[in-house]
Design a protein around this nucleic acid. Structure first.
Lengths: 119, 119
DNA sequence: CCTCATACTTACATTTTTGTTAGTACTTAA
DNA sequence: TTAAGTACTAACAAAAATGTAAGTATGAGG
């Protein structure tokens, strides 16, 4: 939980409200969200499929990030009334609207990584 | 300073090396870099000009972020041998190559903020 | 000699993010 | 009755990011 009154939070809030770029980055940034979003671009995935794909992630982090993405309206959580449980995650319309953007971010990064490894 | 051996750092390193999107975000993310980059898109700026533009930033944070952007090859630091000192910051070619991308991030965020304020 | 202006440093404190470990609930099948 | 499978929670700990406050160097101008 954020401490509503810290300078840190006040700065973040003020910036996110006025700077579109900062706002966007705060939705897709962090250690694991890029990976989650990239996988979901390929279609709906189960909790366990995401967990296996994201090597190194802990259950806690995965749930935390999924909940944030859901709260921000980028993904949908689909629960099946089955035992053992089955839950799938999928990009919302809003999430899909980022596809081009996410791919551009990825492309720029890949080019840069390639350049670095050749230098 | 990062602790080379922490799981945290190992995760970050592994991800940044394989995921282009994560790599890109690690260069332009953080509290102040979006603001710095956006202003520099408009042209070369002095240290003090940046400081005044970025309401709420501390000297420490400004210097820290500028140094990182420089190390990552996105901006250039130009020092004039004058007293009082004069230092200007400017996007590199690599920095400029992000213009479209930065604008897209900004545009997407602005649209979203507008939608939120009308809802 | 003293102050001003600029672009920083440094030491420290706080807040936020990320990671670790152990546990839960629920049914089915052995 | 006991284990197996799935998708989680909760309490705690470590690490990283951010913020605060004070100080530094330089030469010009009064």
């Amino acid at each position: 939980m954020r401490k509503q009154s810290s300078t840190n939070t006040r700065n973040k809030t003020a910036i996110d409200a006025h700077c579109g770029m900062a706002h966007t980055l705060s939705l897709i940034g962090g250690r694991w969200k890029p990976g989650i979003l990239m996988r979901l671009l390929g279609g709906r995935l189960r909790y366990n499929e995401l967990r296996k794909a994201l090597v190194g992630i802990s259950e806690r982090m995965l749930v935390l990030q999924l909940r944030e993405l859901e709260k921000d309206g980028l993904i949908t959580r689909i629960v099946y009334a089955e035992v053992p449980p089955r839950v799938e995650y999928e990009l919302t319309k809003d999430g899909h609207s980022m596809q081009k953007l996410l791919e551009s971010l990825s492309d720029w990064g890949v080019k840069r990584l390639n350049r670095a490894s050749n230098a």
